[in-house]
Computed example of a mutant assay.
Amino acid sequence: MGFIEQNRDLLPYAKYLRKNMTKQEKHLWYDFLSKHRLKWYRQRIIGSYIVDFYCSKLKLVIEIDGGQHLQKNNLYCDNVRTLALQQEGIYVLRFMNSDVDYHFDYVCNEIEKNINERLEKCMDSISKKSPL
């Protein structure tokens, strides 16, 4: 698990996605992640994938999925993508558009809960490496 090379060919598409975020992505970005205490990136290239949101400090991805992600082929592709990211030590959180639309506080609380858990693991890892 080291540096993950970006597929630079995806850069124009990532820029396009940043400028054309869905309503739900905009809501999560402008009303929560852009103001967060940790640095978040939008439509970030990781390897051969573009993820919706990424915090490199925590190796945490947030994906906001529309209904098309429930189709069998898309579920399979999402699982392959998630496994590839997990092999790089990246954790993936997924929410549906409807979660952001109707349960925004829940989504933010779940994200914050996962952030705190990952921060705690980082601190535990650091304290185990440090001699007393």
Score class of each variant (00 low, 15 high):
H27S: 07
N109G: 15
E88S: 11
E88F: 13
L119F: 06
C108Q: 04
V92G: 06
R8Y: 07
S98N: 12
R18Q: 04
R8C: 06
N116M: 08
Q87H: 04
K23C: 02
K57Q: 13
K15T: 01
E117T: 14
S48V: 08
D101V: 14
V107W: 07
L70E: 14
E117N: 15
Y76M: 12
V92Q: 09
N114L: 11
N74V: 10
S98I: 12
C77H: 09
I46H: 03
N116K: 06
L132C: 08
I126D: 15
Y49T: 03
V61K: 00
K35I: 11
D65A: 06
R81D: 07
S125M: 10
R44K: 15
P12Q: 05
V92I: 07
V51S: 11
E112C: 08
I126Q: 14
L132W: 09
E63I: 09
R42V: 10
P131K: 14
Y30L: 10
Q87P: 00
E110K: 11
Q86D: 04
Q43L: 07
R18V: 04
Y76A: 08
I90M: 06
I126E: 15
T82Q: 01
W40R: 06
F3W: 10
F53I: 01
L33S: 01
V100M: 04
D52T: 01
N73F: 09
L38C: 12
L132V: 13
T22D: 09
L70K: 10
H36I: 06
E117R: 15
W29E: 05
V107H: 04
N97A: 08
V80I: 07
L38N: 03
E5Y: 03
A84M: 03
M96Q: 13
L11H: 05
I45Y: 07
I90Q: 02
N116E: 11
Y41L: 05
Q43V: 05
F104K: 02
C108I: 09
S127E: 15
Y54S: 12
H36C: 07
P131E: 13
G47R: 02
E110V: 02
C108R: 07
Y30R: 10
D9G: 10
L132R: 11
P131F: 12
F3V: 11
W40T: 01
Y49N: 14
I62E: 00
F104V: 02
N114D: 12
R81G: 06
E117P: 13
G89M: 09
A14Y: 01
H27K: 15
D52H: 02
E120L: 15
E25A: 07
K59G: 10
R18C: 02
I115F: 10
S56W: 12
I64Y: 00
Y76F: 11
V100W: 05
V100G: 09
I4Y: 01
S34D: 10
G89W: 11
H69I: 07
V92C: 05
E112A: 03
Y91M: 13
W29M: 04
L33G: 00
L38G: 11
I64D: 02
K15E: 06
H69Y: 06
K121W: 12
Y54A: 09
Q6A: 14
R8E: 14
